[in-house]
């Protein structure tokens, strides 16, 4: 095919993305670096001295780390279980995991408002059982955010890991066992190392997703802010465009650092070289 055609086919899409995504992003980052016409990192210095912002950043990172760890701890055993199912049953269970993934995040976060609220399911059950007397405040706390985010991202890590675990040659495990390794040793020395690249990919998806999630923290976090809701608040409620642009830049930088580091780690730990 002639080069000319090639560029003709790619040009409309590229032009569209450049105009409406790349240029606005560059302008946004650029706008944070100039004040009264001179170059400055002032706004970032201000942010990282501000205890309110550091608190928000801390909550966001804590919630994201907790969500990622929980997703892996819960997701890995289940993915392992799924990967060993007969195809038909596996198909049904996978479909049941994918369904929530395609369902609106508003719907899914809302369901936790019903469950975790003051008159919600959890409190009602605990009170009826006589375990507590006064309803617990779970909704509108970081804990509620973590529960909602784990619910949001668990399917993602499940399907990523099932894909990876399926590709592991189970003859290797059988070979190890026939050579005298126990089931657990074979699992630890073969299945886990071979699934590390998949675990890392899954972790990137969950971590970055939690770090930048808006809906779940907005509905379940109450007054507790995360970076995404803080960005929205600065832009829409406070009309502080400079601050909002700086938060947007910080979010992008953190996202790219995380993706970069984890990709490096994935390459390093890839046992297939």
């Amino acid at each position: 095919m002639k080069k000319r055609y090639l560029y003709l086919l790619l040009a409309p899409g590229l032009l569209f993305l450049t105009l409406f995504m790349i240029v606005p992003l560059i302008l946004t980052v650029g706008s944070t670096l100039f004040k009264d016409g001179s170059f400055t990192f002032g706004i970032y210095l201000q942010f990282f001295k501000d205890s309110y912002f550091l608190d928000i950043l801390g909550t966001t990172l804590l919630v994201s780390v907790a969500t990622t760890l929980l997703c892996i701890l819960i997701g890995f055993p289940v993915a392992y279980y799924l990967s060993m199912m007969p195809p038909r049953k596996k198909g049904i269970l996978l479909a049941l995991a994918i369904f929530p993934l395609l369902t609106s995040s508003v719907v899914r976060s809302f369901s936790w408002m019903i469950i975790l609220g003051k008159n919600g399911l959890v409190n009602n059950v605990l009170i009826k059982l006589g375990i507590i007397h006064d309803p617990l405040s779970i909704l509108y706390t970081p804990t509620a955010m973590i529960i909602g985010l784990v619910h949001l991202f668990l399917p993602l890590i499940l399907i990523t890991l099932v894909g990876v675990l399926e590709s592991i040659d189970h003859d290797l495990v059988r070979a190890a066992q026939s050579l005298g390794a126990s089931k657990l040793t074979a699992f630890r020395k073969i299945v886990i190392p071979l699934s590390i690249p998949g675990l890392i990919v899954g972790s990137i998806l969950v971590f970055v997703g939690s770090l930048t999630a808006y809906t779940t923290p907005a509905l379940l976090g109450g007054k507790k802010r995360v970076v995404a809701t803080f960005l929205y608040q600065n832009a829409i409620t406070l009309n502080d465009w400079q601050a909002a642009s700086a938060i947007a830049t910080i979010m992008m930088i953190i996202t790219f650092i995380v993706i970069g580091l984890m990709n490096k780690a994935a390459a390093k730990f890839n046992p297939k070289g």
């Binding site: 590229l14 995504m21 946004t28 642009s245 996202t255």
Partner: peptide, 23 residues
């Protein structure tokens, strides 16, 4: 180029929304 076309998946949605509004 492939990465550019897939990049809207990587850039935080909230950042995309904000920059669209701003510019």
């Amino acid at each position: 180029l492939n990465a550019v076309f897939l990049s809207p998946l990587l850039i935080p949605g909230i950042v995309l929304g904000f920059t669209l509004l701003k510019y």
